[in-house]
Design a protein around this nucleic acid. Structure first.
Lengths: 218, 218
DNA sequence: CGGCCGCGTTGATCTGCCTCAAAGCGGTGC
DNA sequence: GCACCGCTTTGAGGCAGATCAACGCGGCCG
């Protein structure tokens, strides 16, 4: 969010941030239906966002880590549309929305960044819809792993070796699959030499093959 | 978009709109990858937006009608992420983005409306992810029909009797199903007395049953 | 220590939706 | 009129992924 801001603007943004909150693994950052007052920037850790059907089924709609901003879906209705849950011990800082809107009016680059975040969320959701609507299970899982890989890399971590923060069931929910299917696919990718899995730690051996599986033509 | 604006602000918004463009059925409003310069407000007709996988598979991500604003997914990357195609003869007016950002800074209610549009798009995409990831075919189709019903009603049309603008294949692509499945489900809903279908004209007879099918608890 | 519990793996079977195929139907142009 | 074409419907059979079930493993607590 602060990218490209003048020092003075940065100071104003800083001043807006009053609170930094800690959550333990499993704790709820906000619930669906709660009044929306602020966005949350993740400073440490990671969390998932889920939407719930009336009958209790849940769909994980996002997996968020350091630097991500969550809660954007609450702006329109002034209520959170989904529920955010920490996947590990996590720290976020709240960005009060009315103050942010105000600042965005005063600071064009901030306004621009805000719009970028909103728009990128839409783009991300649309790729997810492509996955869920048109891809087969193995393509989805390969895409998921590559997506994680990319995001870890952008944050300066290894792009080929990381620890999953989600259970098989959560991965399944995110990808529209059952946990058994996820587990089987991990095993298959492992046997085929594409990856190494041991519980939640994953090594990607053959990015090219994964990309091909995921439907990337590169 | 203009909701809640002062007369003077309205005039400024009006002044921004230079062009109104017409498209015939099947024509492309914009393509994925094209530079993003403007949003488009639909004044007449309807269109679909689709994302394409590298291998040519396509997923319809949205179905848009009068009053909807499309193109929001291009803001973040400055390129359109999806392709928009007219489903019938359609008129849109372009809202140049740089001008709109500028105006949004000057006119708080406009800024707010813009954010609402962006955020609602995210919310819509998330419900779609819930559908695609967790619902069965009949639930998806019931949800689709109810969604249309609601939107027609909000625009002053009948909520129980309307004409589909999409082919079975397009509905299928939107819902992550094959056209045959869509056709079969229409027939089944018809036989069960929930709806009447004749080609593309649909009457909804039993909204309550559809809602139950769709997983609404109401 | 032993028992429990959450999570993961793997096998066997089932089924909802896809695939393949054929035919109907309405509109359009010749 | 007829032929063609895009769209839709319907049937038969197959398969990817779900479901059901059993077991393994590590961590935690009494």
């Amino acid at each position: 969010m602060p990218v490209g801001l003048e020092p003075e603007a940065l100071a104003q943004l800083d001043a807006m941030i009053t609170s930094q909150t800690r959550f333990k693994k499993g704790e709820i950052l906000y619930r669906a239906g709660e009044p929306f007052t602020a966005l949350y920037a993740i400073r440490l850790g990671s969390c998932k966002t889920t939407v719930l059907a009336e009958d209790g089924r849940e769909q994980i709609t996002g997996y968020h880590m350091l630097g991500d901003i969550i809660g954007l879906d609450g702006i329109g209705t002034e209520r959170h549309a989904c529920e955010a849950i920490a996947l590990e011990d996590t720290q976020v800082c709240a960005l009060p929305w009315d103050r942010l809107e105000e600042l965005a009016r005063a600071i064009p680059p901030l306004q621009h960044n805000l719009h970028r975040f909103l728009s990128r969320d839409i783009g991300r959701d649309q790729s997810m819809m492509l996955m869920l609507g048109s891809m087969r299970a193995e393509e989805r899982l390969a895409g998921f792993l590559l997506n994680l890989s990319e995001r870890y890399q952008r944050r300066g971590y290894s792009s080929t070796e990381f620890v999953l923060r989600m259970t098989r069931e959560e991965i399944g929910s995110y990808l529209g699959l059952k946990l058994e299917t996820v587990s089987r696919l991990f095993s298959r990718f492992h046997d085929e030499g594409l990856i190494q899995v041991q519980g939640r730690s994953v090594k990607l051996f053959d990015l090219t093959a994964l990309r091909q599986l995921a439907g990337y033509r590169c």
